[in-house]
C-alpha cells in the first residue's frame, strides 16, 4: 500500500524460502533494517526520514508480523543465515549498511562475525546478545505484552509513536499479533535469555565499522551493555540518547536519524 504522507510499499513476498512481510521505501542505495523482538508495527517516522537518503528495506523477520515461521529457524544464528540469503534474494547491492535494533542488532553482529563482506557499516541499537555487567535484561516472558511495550519506552506518554501504535485499546488481532511475535521471540531467546555465550569472543573478529546507539534510560537492556559492545568490537563508537528507552527509533526519531546519518553518510 502507499499512503500520501508516507511513500512506501508493503508486500508479502517469497524471500529465501520464506513468505515474509516486506516494507520498503525511498531512493538511493539500499539500507537494511532489522527489527527488535517486539516486531515492527509500521512504517516509522525514522524510516521515512532515512528514506530520503536510502532505499530502506524493513523485512518482518520470519515468525514476526505477517511473516511465516519456518520450523528450522530456532536460534539467532539460524536467523542470521536467513538474513544473508534475504539480502541476496532481494538482489540488494552488497555490501550495504544495516541498522539492527535489539534482537536485530544481535543478528547483524552475528553476521558481521562470520562475513565482513555483507555490511559496509553496522548500527546496533539497544542490541541484545550480551549479558549486562550489572543488572539483568528485563524479562519479557514474565510480563504481559502491554507491560513490555510500556517498559520499552522511557516516557510512553510523550512518545507519539507509542500512542499511535500501542496506546489505544488493543483489538483482538493486535493481541494475536503481539502473541505471535512473543512466540517467535521465545523460540529464539528463551534460554540462554537474550544472550549468547559465544558472542563476546566472536565480536573481537568484527572488522565492519560499527556505531552503537543506546537509550540512556533503556529499561530492557541496561546501558552498560552498550559499553560492552563498544569494548568488544574493534573501533566501535557509541551514541547515547537522552530521555530514551529501548526503542530509540520510535522514542527519539530525530536524534536517532541524525546519529545514523552522521555515521552512514557524513557528507549529508
Amino acid at each position: 500500500m502507499t499512503t500520501a504522507e508516507a511513500a512506501f510499499t508493503e508486500d508479502l513476498v517469497e524471500v529465501a524460502g520464506v513468505r515474509i512481510q516486506l516494507r520498503r521505501g525511498g531512493t538511493g542505495v539500499p539500507l537494511l533494517i532489522l527489527h527488535s523482538e517486539l516486531g515492527v508495527p509500521g512504517w516509522l517516522r525514522a524510516y521515512e526520514h532515512l528514506a530520503r537518503h536510502f532505499t530502506v528495506y524493513v523485512p518482518s523477520l520470519p515468525g514476526f508480523g505477517q511473516s511465516a515461521r519456518p520450523d528450522w529457524i530456532v536460534s539467532v544464528r539460524d536467523l542470521a543465515a536467513w538474513v544473508t540469503w534475504c539480502v541476496r534474494d532481494l538482489k540488494l547491492s552488497q555490501p550495504l549498511p544495516v541498522i539492527g535494533s535489539s534482537l536485530g542488532g544481535w543478528v547483524a553482529a552475528e553476521i558481521a562475525t562470520m562475513n565482513a563482506q555483507v555490511f559496509t557499516k553496522m548500527v546496533l541499537v539497544g542490541a541484545a546478545g550480551l549479558q549486562p555487567d550489572e543488572g539483568h535484561v528485563w524479562d519479557y516472558f514474565m510480563h504481559s505484552n502491554q507491560e513490555a511495550l510500556a517498559q520499552a519506552f522511557y516516557d510512553p506518554a510523550k512518545s507519539p509513536e507509542y500512542a499511535q501504535y500501542f496506546g489505544t485499546a488493543w483489538r483482538p488481532e493486535d493481541e494475536r499479533q503481539a502473541e505471535l511475535n512473543r512466540e517467535m521471540a521465545a523460540r529464539l531467546l528463551w534460554k540462554p535469555y537474550m544472550r549468547s555465550h559465544t558472542l563476546p569472543a566472536l565480536l573481537r573478529g568484527i572488522s565492519t565499522p560499527t556505531l552503537v546507539i543506546w537509550g540512556r534510560e533503556d529499561a530492557i537492556i541496561p546501558l552498560n551493555v552498550c559499553q560492552r559492545y563498544v569494548r568488544a568490537i574493534p573501533g566501535a563508537m557509541a551514541t547515547v540518547l537522552d530521555r530514551c528507552g529501548h526503542l530509540p527509533e520510535m522514542e527519539q526519531p530525530e536524534a536517532f536519524v541524525q546519529a545514523v546519518l552522521d555515521f552512514l553518510a557524513p557528507r549529508a
Binding site: 516472558f141 514474565m142 521465545a186
Partner: peptide, 14 residues
C-alpha cells in the same frame, strides 16, 4: 496468577 504466567508463549498452540 496473571494470564501470561498461565499461558507462557506457545504453551497453547495456535
Amino acid at each position: 496468577a496473571p494470564r501470561h504466567w498461565l499461558q507462557p508463549p506457545g504453551y497453547v498452540s495456535r
